[in-house]
Design a protein around this nucleic acid. Structure first.
Lengths: 372, 372
DNA sequence: CCAGATTTCCATAAGGTTTCGGAAACCTAG
DNA sequence: CTAGGTTTCCGAAACCTTATGGAAATCTGG
């Protein structure tokens, strides 16, 4: 927490533009697009274009001394290879980029978990000199325009699929095109592509925790059911509950969206019931925060009268009142893993595990307590 | 809230790969990279390559009937133009992409405000057929590797700068290179490039609100002071406070990071003082949430014993306990504006205002109250 | 049926790079 | 000094597309 410096800012005028031209070197900055071409470098070197190319590409064929000279001149002239020409010639099919199509709704994106995932993904990609190309999805998830365009024009080497849906049509599309992709959330029963997802029993610790506290009427607020993870987590919840001999009351399962607002609304709906649940399991932390807000506004004390659990362990849950009991996963690891999986797929290598199941870790805070 | 469908997922086996080859059409899928080239289309059409190109590009020079025929054959053969060759020939210098370098720390990114900004940016770009290329910054902000690489290789048409610092070196770098960029947060005194930033008096409503409630000992928890926005908002805070005849106690100004954790720590520090402030102004909502958590843990009642304000109006603040008094800005508009500004700059058009000052709107909730 | 205007097409070149085969220069040993 | 090998270099071709200027075909009016 160093010394604070609140002096007024310095003005920062545009620097004077030097009149275009290298100092001391008579080079023809000429043709085409004003760019220095390999030709120019070769002329300056008094060498052939061929040899210049080979020198700069560090081929065995050329004397070390020449290489150095070439590099020097190239640097001095500010030569930078024309990527288009190179790729055209080499027939390189690599874009050195991977694509990610954002869920189109802004709300779906405000989740800190997802933001961190993206951050981890991009960091890993950047470390491998790969760029992440971002677009935002158009209306229905089965409109493949984004994917098709990037794919067909060879703009990316592969895709990362997020927010996969149950029987996600994108999967079939990409599989059929035989194009590399990885998914966050399996999208079907027995996927044979790389993905990252929760383990099957991911909700067990939460359920067991609540049941141990005496809860029997346990509600569940789920993300839209069409999404793979919502589906998966609900099945897990259902299994965990029934395994403990407790029936799942369908009336206590409420479908919401992804954000606090919808969690708030869903909770209100549950509160209207005469036989209110004693515990609410929300499928993510944002929903749970909404539930906490609804409870606060309804005068329902948490955890005395109601226990609430979330999922993801975003930072906001830690500082909520009361602190949110939740399940911790590492979004950065997810992003990192997805990236490595995809690059393996693209490169044909096989370093990372193709399919990763994440073990969640329950974090007990003050939003859960014994049933009164 | 439609019917929930929790039937088990369908397996989705990879579709059988058809043996490579168009049905019914004897075309040589031959050379190079297996791609169908313009040559192939021309041969199939019995036309010259030139005319085929012109036909597919819808030039005036070619008969409508021919165009249709060409389009049909191209579609059937699955021809897709080689972007490299086209760009090489046309000398097009457009990458149809803009670059954004993420702040390298994961923590800096978990802010929902920033996430929404990004979402707005990408949505706007996508609508204009522009892609957003994402990389993550390396250690010091004055290491330009990311920018330089993308710039020099003509990978992007322009940059969006976020988290600008006071006298941000990136600005000088890009200005000198005469490369298009826009900034979120002016980075210097009299910038002559497009940017989006807060109005100068952005903190006034908050300060006036608190002072009207009787607060005199007002602390401020700021984001790292080297960042332009932190600096700017603090100056605004300082001005607003002194304008009302209240001196700013330097001991009540604490520098933190961006997230809840650091807000928590900073608040603890303030709580240790014998003459505790009666109000804490945090420079963003996450910090404020941390303060609320710290107050809760220290047994300090908000707003009875302490008023807390945030900035940004992220959703989590609305559902915090108590609801957070804050300043609302629209992150999506910011992202959108930045994108339009940059595209204007790149295209040489001038639709959007080059410099936008955002007026914040105070949102009063329950975290602020009269001084006891 | 022909001159001239108009429409439709084509052969060639070009864009910047890499690859290929072979040529020139150099070195070593006999 | 020369044969044979090694190192270093170069000319020409190729990657796929588009632009240019002009040729061929078609149409118009007399």
């Amino acid at each position: 927490m160093g010394p604070l410096s609140h002096a007024p800012m310095q003005p920062c005028p545009r620097p004077e533009r030097e009149t275009q031209g290298r100092d001391g070197n008579v080079s023809v900055m000429d043709p085409a697009n004003g760019r220095v071409t390999l030709h120019d470098v070769a002329r300056e070197l008094g060498m052939s274009v061929t040899q210049t190319s080979r020198a700069l590409n560090d081929k065995w064929d050329v004397a070390e001394k020449t290489k150095e000279r070439a590099r020097a001149v190239a640097a001095e002239l500010g030569y930078v290879p024309n990527l288009e020409a190179r790729r055209l010639k080499t027939g390189s099919v690599r874009a050195d980029a991977i694509g990610l199509v954002l869920p189109q709704s802004e709300l779906h994106f405000s989740n800190a978990f997802f933001a961190e995932l993206l951050s981890g993904l991009v960091a890993t990609a950047t470390a491998k000199q790969i760029e992440v190309r971002l677009t935002v999805g158009v209306a229905p998830a089965n409109d493949f325009k984004n994917y098709e365009q990037a794919l067909v024009w060879r703009q990316v080497d592969g895709f990362v699929l997020v927010r996969t849906e149950v029987d996600d049509p994108r999967i079939g599309f990409l599989a059929e095109a035989d194009f590399p992709f990885v998914a966050f959330g399996r999208g079907c029963e027995n996927p044979d592509f790389p993905f990252v997802d929760d383990v099957d029993h991911v909700m067990s610790p939460i359920v067991e925790h609540l049941v141990a506290l005496g809860h029997r009427r346990i509600a569940c607020i789920i993300e839209p059911a069409r999404f793979s993870m919502s589906h998966h987590r609900f099945l897990s919840f259902e299994n965990a509950v029934t395994d403990l001999g407790i029936p799942v009351d369908p009336d206590l399962v409420v479908e919401a969206d992804f954000d606090e607002d919808s969690g708030y609304v869903a909770a209100q709906k549950l509160f209207q019931r005469t036989d209110r649940p004693t515990a609410i399991v929300a499928q993510n932390d944002l929903l749970a925060l909404g539930v906490l807000g609804a409870a606060r506004d309804a005068g329902i004390r948490v955890p005395d009268e109601l226990s609430v659990t979330g999922f993801d362990d975003i930072m906001a849950g830690r500082y909520a009142t009361p602190g949110l009991t939740t399940v911790r996963r590492s979004p950065r690891i997810v992003g990192e893993t997805l990236c490595l999986q995809l690059l393996d797929l693209v490169n044909g290598t096989a370093e990372a595990d193709p399919q990763v199941l994440l073990e969640g870790k329950i974090v007990v805070r003050d939003s859960t307590g014994p049933v009164r």
